[in-house]
Simulated scan of single mutants.
Amino acid sequence: MSSIHREVLIDESPENVWAAIRDFGEVHNRLAPGFVTDTHVEGDVRIVTFASGIVVHELIVDVDDESRRIAYAVVGGALEPRHHHASMQVLNDTEGRSRFVWITDVAPDGLGEPIAEMVDQGIRVIKRTLDREAAPNR
Rank of each mutant, 00 (worst) to 15 (best):
E80L: 06
I60G: 02
H28R: 00
R124T: 11
I10F: 03
V106G: 10
N16E: 15
H83T: 13
I10T: 09
D109A: 12
R22A: 15
S67V: 07
L91G: 08
G122D: 08
E113V: 11
A78E: 15
F100H: 09
I21W: 10
M88T: 10
D93C: 05
H85L: 05
S98H: 05
D23F: 06
E95Q: 07
F100A: 05
L111E: 14
I47E: 08
D23Q: 11
G110C: 04
V8P: 14
M1V: 10
V125Y: 04
V27D: 14
N29P: 10
A19W: 02
M1R: 01
G43E: 09
D11Q: 10
V119F: 04
F35A: 11
E15W: 02
L130P: 05
A134F: 06
G53W: 09
R132L: 09
D93E: 15
R46T: 09
A135M: 12
A135Y: 13
N92L: 09
R82H: 13
I54E: 13
A86G: 12
V8H: 06
E80I: 05
L79A: 07
E95N: 13
V90G: 05
R68E: 07
R22P: 11
A107S: 15
E95H: 11
A135P: 08
E80Q: 14
I47R: 03
R132P: 07
H28W: 06
W18E: 12
P136A: 06
Y72V: 00
P14L: 01
E58V: 01
M118S: 13
G112W: 11
I70D: 05
D44L: 00
V74D: 11
V56T: 15
S2E: 14
V36E: 13
A78W: 08
P108H: 09
F35Q: 05
I70V: 11
I70G: 00
N137V: 13
R138W: 14
E26N: 15
V63T: 11
F50Y: 13
W18C: 03
I70L: 06
R82C: 06
V8G: 12
L9K: 12
V36F: 10
T94N: 12
V27E: 14
D131A: 03
R30T: 15
Q121S: 12
Y72K: 00
H5F: 09
I70Q: 00
N137M: 08
G112R: 01
I60R: 01
G76R: 03
S3V: 10
A20E: 15
V119E: 10
R22Q: 14
